[in-house]
Amino acid sequence: MSAVIIIVAYFSLAVFVIVAVYRTLRVATLPVHLRWELAPVPHEKGRSHYGGSYLEEYEWWKKPRSRSLISELIYMLQEILLLRGVWEHHRRLWWFSLPFHTGIYLLIGAGALLLVAAGLDWAGAAAAGVMARAAVAVALVGHLLGALGALGLLVRRLTDPRLVAVRTAGTLFNLVFLLAVFTTGAAAVAMADRPARRLVECTQAVLTADFSAAIPGLLAVHLLLAFLLLAYLPFTPMLHFVAKYFTYHRVRWDDDPLVARPRLEGEVKELLEQPVSWSAPHVASGGGKRWIDIARELPEE
């Protein structure tokens, strides 16, 4: 069983990294777009609390920009850790979405603690036990919160008329999958004999690809599901934690004027040279004229 789990673990990790990196790079390397900012922009110092921008300033181009990276950071932390947007605009979902996401954050933390514990254990450090027990506690809370959140979100999907109308097999499958991972994880940790020891051994087995390690049944099922989820995740919108960087920083809050970004101007000049093939008569693309020429010329009547 451990061989299967270890192979699946490496396979899943590889799939996750490759697909997530691919999707991230794909978005990151897309051409610069036209400005499409949306208030409020939190880095607007002294103005973000009401949604104001530097464009309120008389002859703004003659004045230095006053940015507050701290405001931006606070906004992002509130958004990531407390789900500020869901709290403000979809409170009924927030009660489940928050434990769900908090559970995931705790599980990431538990994973990190386990890695450290495994390392300390190899080094023979006494702190390994403390670290492992902390990992167990964090993992248990994380799984329980995750399960509570996933169950609540599933119930909302099944009962809230607004969500029922748009639910798809995919959204339900995702939640059931997550619920299975969380519940098996919680049960495996709670029911294990000496869970701290077990988890450290299991971590070490995966890290060293030790096929001979014994992994208890329930923990094996949980790990199998968790690693399969890891491989599945980057193919879905659940990768939105990556997208969020771009939607916020590269779209909503990307309010720099072109004059302030000379490098961007070079990129834009290249884009204006792109051939265009839109077919409507008024575009008059001629099957591949340059974007800038199309914008400069008027089609003949």
Binding site: R23, G85, V86, H89, H90, L93, S97, R162, L163, V166, R167, T168, T171, P237, M238, L239, H240, A243, K244, T247
Partner: peptide
């Protein structure tokens, strides 16, 4: 590609 269909 990233709408999670939460209907917020």
């Amino acid at each position: 590609e990233y709408c999670v269909r939460c209907q917020t």
